[in-house]
């Protein structure tokens, strides 16, 4: 006859506390070394000469013109890619046609291309010695080493953001609601604006936010096509590079801190929207 000892049932589907602590510790150290310290370093360096130095760096006319150009570039690239994303997602998610998988893969292509190559192809196309170079020179159109080149290179590198977010979202939603609207007499554009758009608006916003972050921060592709003309073709990341190479660290990090804040806002909005989109399946 044995006497049963009272003991807590060991958790059969969890790790021992030691393992949990160890794994969490390693994970936190990794995040600390690779993410938190570099982020903190940006702010620390930016304010190395106090708040006055920080403000002075941002008020510099060249910094202001870089900020303006960055805003302009994003202002061109983001709406165009949004339009494309919605159109492509509509065609891909709502219709059946051969070659669909290939189209989806082609949309992702720019993500597989090095930003430097993205810049290079536009130099090969529109540069002075490029394919269309002679024609452009004859008509006095400047694309490379000018704002249009920066815009088009940025469009290329941010091309997939909205589309790749919307395609799975719209495929998940099936066509029921749109079909219901059609049987109720709605025209195509009524169905789109009243039914489809409200259902994908958070998805669009999500794609737009990510697209914008990349558009404002793109460095490699823009670096190739810009020509680094100060006050004219310098975006914020290029301005940071120049300041840094001139050993003007405080100013470089001051401008960098703006982009860092943009990215922190971006990831905050991103995680808020992710929750919103996931709930959206059950509520509005």
């Amino acid at each position: 006859m044995s006497i049963t000892r009272t003991s807590a049932v060991p958790n059969s589907t969890g790790e021992p506390a030691v393992v949990r602590w160890l794994l969490t510790g390693i994970a936190l150290t990794f995040i600390f070394l690779f993410l938190i310290i570099p982020v903190a370093a940006v702010f620390a360096e930016a304010f190395a000469r106090g708040f006055a130095g920080y403000v002075k760096a941002l008020k510099d006319p060249l910094a202001v013109s870089a900020i303006k150009l960055t805003l302009l570039t994003a202002g061109i690239a983001v709406p165009l890619n949004m339009l494309f994303g919605v159109a492509a997602a509509w065609a891909i998610a709502k219709f059946e046609f051969p070659g669909k998988n290939i189209l989806v893969s082609l949309i992702d292509l720019p993500f597989a291309v090095s930003p430097v190559i993205a810049g290079l192809i536009f130099v090969l196309l529109y540069g002075t010695y490029g394919l269309l170079g002679p024609w452009l020179v004859k008509h006095d159109i400047k694309i490379i080493f000018a704002v249009p080149g920066i815009a088009i290179a940025t469009i290329f590198v941010t091309f997939p953001f909205v589309a790749r977010e919307l395609i799975p979202l719209m495929q998940l939603q099936a066509n029921d609601e749109e079909e219901a609207a059609t049987t109720l007499g709605a025209r195509g554009w009524q169905t789109f604006f009243r039914i489809t758009l409200p259902n994908i608006k958070w998805g669009i916003l999500y794609g737009v936010i990510l697209c914008n972050a990349r558009a404002m921060g793109e460095f490699g592709a823009v670096s190739v096509v810009s020509g680094h003309i100060r006050g004219q073709t310098n975006t914020m990341p290029l301005h940071i590079e120049i300041l840094y190479n001139e050993y003007n660290f405080t100013a470089a990090f001051a401008v960098a801190s703006l982009l860092l804040m943009l990215s922190l806002i971006t990831i905050t909005l991103k995680s808020l929207l992710e929750r919103r989109i996931h709930q959206g399946r059950y509520s509005r």
Partner: peptide, 16 residues
């Protein structure tokens, strides 16, 4: 759109 039929979908397809 022009047939003027009322269609009730299996999962209702209400506009959420």
């Amino acid at each position: 759109r022009d047939r003027k039929v009322g269609f009730v979908f299996q999962n209702y397809a209400l506009f959420r």
